[in-house]
Simulated scan of single mutants.
Amino acid sequence: MHEIDVVGIGNAIVDVLCQADDAFLERHDLTKGAMMLVDAEQASRLYAAMPPGVEVSGGSAANTMAGIAALGGKGAFIGKVRDDQLGEVFAHDIRSIGLSFMTPPLLEGAPTGRCLIVVTPDAQRTMNTFLGAAIDLTAEDINPEVIRAAKITYLEGYLWDPEAAKAAFRKALDVAHAGGRKVALTLSDSFCVDRHRDEFRALVDQVDIVFANEAEILSLYQVATFDEALHAVRKAGTLAVLTRSEQGSVILDGDDVHVIGAERGVNVLDTTGAGDLYAAGFLAGLTSGKPLAQCGRMGAIAAAEAISHMGARPQVDLAALVAEKLG
């Protein structure tokens, strides 16, 4: 297989997005800005109550890979769908943007996963995820040839729950490092960190790059301030890429610290996918040899585009936008 920039491993799901007010969240006992796992019955009930919206292929790592493709990078995605209508939609969508997707679908069992996203007027997104077939990813789905071909393997923290998926991640990590390749991990959500704190700390020590927002990194190390979190993650010796919403981002590489400002003048409509697209911009820059500060700037530009519209996938020529902004 020819060399590729990034292979993403994560939940293959379809996003269902709608706009609603805070009262809707209260009626359905939803915590604003959080991600909750729901079962099939809960998903059906909430879906029936949601106002009209849009349905697009999603999933955190898949969104990142879509951003990398939009920036001209070469990529692949590994994730599990069912052989149903949504599974076919997901596969078509991700292949249509130039990504390799060869994971065989489930032939029986849970349907393709979906994430029900409620966006409130303040642009906060509240996610309710039915993982469905996504959690049936196994080590057998990890193609060593694809991992060895990728400069970076990107692991989605949302998927770190089923034992089979953990085994898949560990296999990918081992194959990548054995081949002299790098591995990146996104912590995904404070919900995930709270559930798997000790394991995530161990993973951060093993991977080469960690992506996290401020709440996630504070939760990981159970500290009260961002400076304390920086001190803690520095000890791990891992390249840390930490986003802070309107305060921009911080890139920590040993004793080197790069502070990247957020993009200004953005009309924020939906924060869904901001972190995913930041990671896309950063990884696209890193795999093309850009210095860390420029990688962070690319991440900030991609994130700003994502939050300017509904949905996490780019809606403009992202490569042209980045080129224009960077001058």
Rank of each mutant, 00 (worst) to 15 (best):
D136A: 11
M102P: 00
V210R: 02
P144E: 12
L137W: 01
S96V: 13
I94C: 09
F130A: 05
A70P: 01
G113C: 06
A178M: 02
F200I: 11
R82C: 11
S100Y: 04
D84E: 09
I97V: 14
L173M: 15
P104L: 09
T153I: 02
N128R: 12
S190M: 11
L99C: 02
D161S: 14
G79C: 00
V118L: 09
L155V: 09
G109N: 13
V119L: 06
G132I: 07
K182I: 06
A110W: 00
F211Y: 07
A164C: 15
K80R: 14
V119R: 07
M102W: 10
L187V: 07
E140I: 10
C192H: 08
D136C: 14
H92Y: 12
T112C: 02
L71V: 09
V118A: 12
V81G: 04
T138D: 11
D174H: 14
H196M: 14
G73V: 05
A139R: 10
L106H: 03
L203N: 05
L187Y: 01
N128D: 05
Q124K: 15
F101S: 07
E214S: 11
D136H: 15
K182P: 00
W160L: 13
P144G: 07
A149V: 00
G179Y: 05
V175K: 08
H177A: 03
G75I: 02
T120A: 11
P104V: 11
F191A: 09
D84F: 02
M127F: 06
A76V: 01
D189Y: 05
P111Q: 04
H177I: 00
H92A: 14
F90R: 03
R170G: 01
K151W: 00
G180W: 11
Q85D: 15
G75P: 00
A164Q: 15
A202K: 15
I97E: 02
A164K: 15
T120F: 06
L107P: 08
D141Q: 08
S188V: 07
D161P: 02
I142D: 06
A172H: 08
V89G: 00
G109S: 09
Y154Q: 02
A164I: 09
I147T: 04
R125E: 06
